[in-house]
Design a binder for these strands. Sequence first.
DNA 1: GTTAGGG
DNA 2: CCCTAAC
Length: 599
Amino acid sequence: MGTLVDTEINRDYNADASSSQPVADTVVYQLVRVEDDGSLVPATVDEVMEAENLLEDDKNEASQVEITIHTGRQMPDEDISLKKSDLESSEGVSHSKFNAVELSKLNSKVQEESLPLAQALNNSPKNEDVASPLNNHCDHLNVCNEKLAPKTDYAQSTSLIDNHAAPLGSGETCSEHVNEAVTNGSLDSETCSNLMPDFSILKGEIHLDSLTIRELQEAFRATFGRQTSVKDKLWLKRRIAMGLTNSCDIPSGSFTIKDNKIVSKHDTEEVPCRLQASNSEAVPLSNDQVTAPIYDNCQGSPSSLANQAEDQQVPSCKRNRETILEYDVKSEDINEEPCASKRVRKPTKRYIEELSDFEARECTGKIFTPARISGHFHSSPKSIARPTHDSGLQGKTSVTRQESVGGFTVQVPYVCRVRRQRPRKSFMTFMNFVDSESEKRDQENFDIDERDVQHDMADIGEDNSDDSAYAKLKGSIKRKHHRAWTLCEVLKLVDGVARYGAGKWSEIKRIAFASYTYRTSVDLKDKWRNLLRASFALKTTEKAPKISRKPSSLPIPIPILMRVRELAEMHSKAGIDFSPRKVAGEVPTVLKEKGTGFL
DNA sequence: GTTAGGG
DNA sequence: CCCTAAC
């Protein structure tokens, strides 16, 4: 057995403009399984889902002890959002499956060959909860492949970094591209002692624009009850404004807040403030922020655990793809929704694929919203077969955007996610499935080329990379040769439906289409559906005579369409009122009014 | 394995 | 015609 480690892909956000570290640094977090031997294996989608389910379950447990520490630096909304979820088990809780691991800080420009690895330091002493503002990581940690210390909410902690990051780093050798520390104990209550924020800063009219970074940080702390070391003024102002107004719709350029409202030119913000409640806002914490379970006690907030639970849910905002177009904070609403909804139907792989494409497109757009990165939304092998996929870099795409750094314009790769799955153990099964599916569809097609293709596909199955395999696979599967439906076939179909009923496609196929080997039951069903559409379309166009704009397809004789409609109506009627009659009379009278099309 | 329904 | 969830 292993330990699941939650990670996510994130892009490092360097808020410190003075830092010499390139902004293009990338942090990749990945859900991995820690095997017994300490090796890490990328988690499967199922494991990701399991992790999420556990999180949700835990959230609902009154005796919840496992707290997710969500850290993540929210960036200005025009930038990529960085979120990182650290799962942290409480002290003494051994059943936790999760540990927080930050896999690696990946310099995408330099370490293109590197794969995110991780080393979990499960025995990390709890008193090593160290704040390590990301801004400073760069300077301290890049020597050792950018190891990142666990981020803890430590007041005035910047100075502690040097003292604490080193011991953490020395705990494990700076293995290749790796290094991480897991804060595996509960955070000390001292973390938040003597940290009463200065709420006075939030009194009266707040001119965020005129505040210094330090003051903004203080205001941030007063607002969210969390320490931040983000030095990005804009980010801070936006965050604070959001927190104070409990709104994510903060006009840019105006950060004066009075009475919990944004005082702007348009004066549009009328959202009441719930100051402490904003703690539950899906504001991603900075990377250097970790909220201890007991933290809220120090804040005197009555919402403590609940809010923690909400925070715990913060990463899950990515699960709500519906919010993809919304500012990430809006996911709060979703997270706060009563969990009454049933488990949503699993999105189809096609849907996943499209989402992936969308995500890729979005990455090239101006606004990046933290998409739902969690595994099950990226499980499709198909989604992997994107043209931009760089097989050498797991989870990294070559989608880039321009970012100007100190006058230089650099190509910053968006890291949408890590590899969706570890190499599928059942990949051959998968391949066989595809193979058999294809064979099934073409079993009667006696197409030599088709067989060869399938043979090739089997060979592809040897490939370890499901990505490339699927790409090849998809490219090589030949679409079934299109055969237009003849009138004869249509008549057979109609007659078959009349005889056996719509839905008995296999029956109709077996009896009426025995000699039409290329027509499958699915084809029959599809054709019937089209016939229905045509027939009802005919019905409507009859009233409003209009030339059908369908010169392409062979027109179905109107009498046939009429019959189709009769059959359909009769069928629907039979389903409701005439079941006895249906049983009594095998062959509907409709059938007889016109000769069957049978040959 | 078959069907339904979205694509 | 393809794909896949649901049965």
